[in-house]
Measured scan of single mutants.
Amino acid sequence: TTVVVGNKKYTFDNPEAAEKFAKKVAKKLGATVHKTNGTFKVK
């Protein structure tokens, strides 16, 4: 599962961990999490 934050990509074996990370980053940046085909995008 990939999490994309700006131009950085983070890969997780565990989708739950990926989602948690994405939400944490989004909260910090005041952004939102978008899920597309198993990829979480923070923007």
Rank of each mutant, 00 (worst) to 15 (best):
T1F: 13
T1K: 06
T1A: 13
T1G: 10
T2S: 10
T2Y: 14
T2P: 06
T2A: 10
V3C: 04
V3H: 00
V3I: 03
V3M: 01
V3T: 02
V4D: 05
V4C: 11
V4L: 14
V4K: 06
V5W: 05
V5D: 01
G6Q: 05
G6V: 05
G6S: 04
G6N: 06
N7M: 11
N7A: 10
N7F: 11
K8I: 08
K9N: 08
K9L: 10
Y10K: 02
Y10R: 03
Y10T: 02
Y10A: 02
T11I: 13
T11A: 08
T11Q: 10
T11F: 13
F12M: 03
F12I: 02
F12E: 00
F12K: 01
F12V: 01
D13K: 13
D13G: 11
N14Y: 07
E16T: 12
E16F: 12
A17G: 06
A17L: 12
A17K: 12
A17P: 04
A18G: 06
A18K: 00
A18L: 01
E19W: 15
E19D: 05
K20I: 12
F21W: 12
F21C: 04
F21S: 00
F21L: 03
A22N: 00
A22T: 02
K23N: 14
K23P: 00
K24W: 15
A26F: 02
K27S: 08
K27H: 09
K27I: 09
K28C: 09
K28Y: 09
K28F: 10
L29E: 03
L29H: 06
G30P: 01
G30I: 03
G30A: 04
A31V: 07
T32Y: 07
T32V: 11
V33A: 03
V33D: 01
H34G: 04
H34R: 06
K35E: 08
N37I: 04
G38D: 07
G38L: 04
T39E: 15
T39C: 13
T39W: 09
F40K: 03
F40I: 15
F40E: 03
F40H: 04
K41A: 13
K41T: 15
V42D: 03
V42I: 11
K43C: 15
